[in-house]
């Protein structure tokens, strides 16, 4: 499986969750996929500029970023960040011809082609949180669910609000940066109202920002409402844990 792949980690992963990019690299290693990364040449994709209403600065930045990516001549760009993914797919006309993939695409292909050997083991009851940029804004609902249901010891249960009805983790629209108290409270409610009735062991998602917010939400909900302690995993992390 060769993609001629450029791995784009995105700002949130690089600065706030570097262990996640480590996990992506590890998974690519397991799959034997060669890839390159931009290192310090990787700049923000500019998506937050769009969220702030700064379309002008965005266009300038996107032109630069497009040049850098194109200079690598990759066949595909892979990112684990739904924000970057949505941004590349929708607002980067200059990348046309280069395939843009989210990590859920990569994992789904790997599962389908039998490239992943699941270790089995203790039963894990999980639910899946749809990141807004991946679900509602990009229409990727089935891939992560198909991945999860194909893992032998994983049981997937759905929240009453899921897929297009999913409750945002609270971090979207730069709210995590602009009004953090409100942003976190949304995550607390998500854990308390949507997740805790399911009695799951873990929440799986596929977005570094959702992970940050849901982890905050989970620990506050545990403290204030006594909800059960939860593991919050990116799907990449989960796959690494459960495969050889």
């Amino acid at each position: 499986m060769r993609y001629g792949l450029l791995y784009w980690s995105g700002c949130t992963t690089s600065y706030l969750a570097p262990e996640l990019s480590g996990n992506v690299v590890k998974l690519l290693g397991k799959l034997g996929v060669e890839f390159r990364a931009l290192g310090s040449r990787e700049k923000c994709c500019g998506y937050p500029l769009l969220l702030l209403g700064d379309g002008g600065s965005f266009s300038e930045l996107a032109a630069d970023v497009s040049e850098v990516i194109k200079s690598e001549e990759p066949e595909a760009v892979l990112t684990n960040c739904p924000g970057c993914y949505r941004c590349f797919v929708n607002y980067y006309p200059k990348l046309s011809g280069i395939k843009v993939m989210h990590t859920t695409h990569l994992i789904y292909d790997a599962v389908k082609n039998g490239k992943l050997k699941f270790r089995g083991g203790e039963k894990l009851r999980v639910t899946y949180h749809d990141p807004c940029d991946l679900g509602r804004h990009s229409g990727v609902y089935d891939l992560p669910r198909n991945i999860l249901t194909s893992i032998p010891n994983v049981e997937l249960v759905e929240m009453s609000r899921s897929r297009e009805n999913s409750r945002c983790c609270g971090a979207g629209g730069v709210l995590r940066l602009s009004i953090p108290q409100l942003s976190t409270q949304i995550a607390v409610t998500k854990i308390k109202d949507d997740v805790s009735p399911l009695n799951v062991d873990a929440v799986i998602t596929a977005c570094p920002t959702c992970i940050k917010n849901l982890k905050d939400g989970s620990s506050i909900s545990e403290m204030l409402y006594g909800t059960k302690g939860l593991a919050i995993y990116d799907i990449v992390e989960l796959i690494n844990m459960l495969t050889e």
């Binding site: 700002c11 690089s14 600065y15 706030l16 990787e42 700049k43 923000c44 500019g46 937050p48 500029l49 702030l52 209403g53 700064d54 600065s57 930045l61 730069v174 940066l177 602009s178």
Partner: peptide, 25 residues
């Protein structure tokens, strides 16, 4: 809002960070 100068400075600084440091933080 941005064009009308109504975007609060705190949010402008996020945009400035991106332009200066290449990341919103």
């Amino acid at each position: 809002l941005l064009k009308a100068g109504l975007t609060p400075p705190q949010l402008i600084s996020i945009a400035e960070n991106i332009k200066t440091y290449g990341n919103p933080f």
